[in-house]
Design a protein around this nucleic acid. Structure first.
Lengths: 250, 250
DNA sequence: GAGTGGTCTAGACCACGAT
DNA sequence: TCGTGGTCTAGACCACTCT
C-alpha cells in the first residue's frame, strides 16, 4: 500500500491558463501536451500510447486516461482497442449558430451592413419575454439593412439585453455581432428560429428595393449563450436573393 | 499492494443488454443501477454518493466514478463539488431532426398524409448526387399531400435510397417516415436543409387549395444516418398555415 | 467536523490487434 | 508474443459545502 503522497511541488514550465490554485493539475498537463502534439496532425495519425505518457510524465495510468478521456470526448482523439489512440477525423460540424455576416462569407459574397438605428430602448412585452427581462428594462435596438454584393438582401431588427453587454453602443457597432459577442464570452450556443414566407410590407419593400407585395422570408431568432438570453431578432429577406441553409444534428 | 484479482464470477441478476462476453461489467452495473434510480426523478434530486455506491457494490471508487462519468456526459447527472451528485435539469434538446408528423404532433395538430405516389424509380442526376448514388440507380419516390387538422399544408416529394431499406414499398408505407427509418437503425442524425420563399406553381396551388401565385415556403432536405445518405426531399408549404421551427445548438 | 466530489497512485488482469 | 486500450483495485490527500 502507498504511504502519504508528497505535496506534489510541481516546478516545471507552466502555462498560466492551466493553473488551478497556483498548481498545474497533472491530467491537465498531460492533456495539453497531447493536444499540442496532435494539433494539425492528419486524422488517423497516432497519438502517444498511454504507457508512453505514463513514462514521460511519471504519473499513473489512470491520470493519463483522464487526460485522454477529455480529448476523446472533445472529439479530438479516437481510441481503438488493441491498436492505439489516434487523431479523430474532424467531427461533422454540429449546427453552428451563424449570423448574417458569416452566412454571406460562406457563400463568398461581400457582406455589407448599413445601420439604420442603434439606440437604447425600453423593452416591449414581446422582447422582454424573449430576453427574460421585465417590460421597460433597457435593451439595445439595432436595425440594419444588409447587402450582399451591393444588393439589398435583408432588413434586420435585433434586440440585445443591455445588461449583458455594457458599453456596447459606445464602443462602436461591430461588423459581425456574433464575433463581438464571442469576444465577450457570449457567443450564442443555442437558438430558437422560426421561419415563414410572406409578402413584404410597403416599408420593407422600399428598403429592400422590392415591388410592394413581393415574396419575402421572415426569420425570427431567439439566441442564448448558455443560460443567458442575449439576442432576439426579426429579419426579413428578399426571397429572390436569399436561400437559408441549415445544418442539423451532429 | 493488491494481489491478483479473483476472476470476478458475478452471479447476480443481469440484464442481457448489459453483458459483454457473458459477464456484466461492474461500471455498467453501477451505471444502470443509478440510471434506474434516477429515472423520472426531478432535476436537483440527489443521486447516491460515490462512497455509498462503493459500499453497495463492493467496488473501487474509480469504478463508481467511471459509471457516473458516463451518466454525467450523457447529461443525466450533474456533479457539484462539496455537495454531491444530482439529477441534471434535462439538457436542452440538441436540434433534433424532425419530420412533418413529429412537427405536427408537437403543435397538437392532427397529422394526416395522403400518398399520391409511391414507386420505384431511376435516380435522376440531382437525386443521385444527393444520395451518393449513380444516375439510374433505384430510388423510392414517395409523394405525399400532408394535412393538419384536415387542411392541406404541405406537398412533399421524398426520394429514398432503396438499397438501404429493402422491402420498404412492399411493407406498406409507414405513418412516420422517420419512425420507420428509426426501426431500421437509419434514423437521420444529420441533415442539410435549405429554405426559401416562393410562389406556388399551378399544380402546387391546386393540390394545396391555394390561389395560383400564393406565397409558399420551399424546403429541401438531405438527410443522413451516420455516413449513409438516406433521404432527399423537396417540400412546399402553405405559408399561411405553416411556420417552421428550428432549434440550433446544444 | 463530517461528507462530498476532484485528483492521484502503483499496480493488476483482460481482450484484442499486429507481427 | 508483444503492445494497446479497457477494466478494476484499495487506498491517499485536497478543496469545498453544510451543519
Amino acid at each position: 500500500m502507498r504511504t502519504r503522497r508528497p505535496p506534489t511541488p510541481y516546478s516545471g514550465p507552466v502555462d498560466d491558463s492551466l493553473l488551478t490554485h497556483g498548481r498545474a493539475l497533472k491530467h491537465v498537463q498531460v492533456r495539453e501536451y497531447v493536444r499540442s502534439l496532435v494539433a494539425g496532425q492528419a486524422p488517423g495519425s497516432p497519438a502517444p500510447s498511454e504507457r508512453e505518457l505514463v513514462h514521460r510524465f511519471g504519473v499513473a495510468r489512470m491520470t493519463v486516461r483522464q487526460a485522454l478521456d477529455t480529448l476523446v470526448s472533445e472529439g479530438l482523439l479516437e481510441r481503438i482497442p488493441g491498436r492505439g489512440t489516434f487523431v479523430a477525423r474532424p467531427p461533422r460540424v454540429t449546427s453552428t449558430i451563424t449570423g448574417y455576416s458569416e452566412e454571406m462569407a460562406r457563400r463568398g459574397l461581400l457582406s455589407e451592413s448599413q445601420t439604420l438605428l442603434a439606440r437604447r430602448e425600453q423593452a416591449g412585452p414581446g422582447v422582454a419575454r424573449a430576453l427574460n427581462l421585465t417590460e421597460g428594462d433597457a435593451v439595445i435596438h439595432w436595425r440594419r439593412l444588409r447587402r450582399g454584393d451591393g444588393q439589398p438582401i435583408c432588413l434586420e431588427d435585433a434586440y440585445l439585453n443591455e445588461v449583458l453587454i455594457p458599453g456596447f453602443l459606445q464602443s462602436g457597432m461591430p461588423t459581425s455581432l456574433y464575433d463581438e459577442l464571442g469576444e465577450r464570452g457570449l457567443r450564442p450556443t443555442w437558438a430558437e428560429d422560426s421561419i415563414t414566407a410572406d409578402k413584404a410590407t410597403r416599408e420593407e419593400a422600399e428598403l429592400l428595393e422590392l415591388a410592394p407585395g413581393a415574396v419575402v422570408m421572415r426569420h425570427s431568432r431567439r439566441a442564448l449563450a448558455g443560460e443567458k438570453a442575449i439576442e432576439v431578432s426579426r429579419s426579413v429577406y428578399r426571397a429572390d436573393r436569399f436561400t437559408m441553409w441549415i445544418q442539423l444534428g451532429g
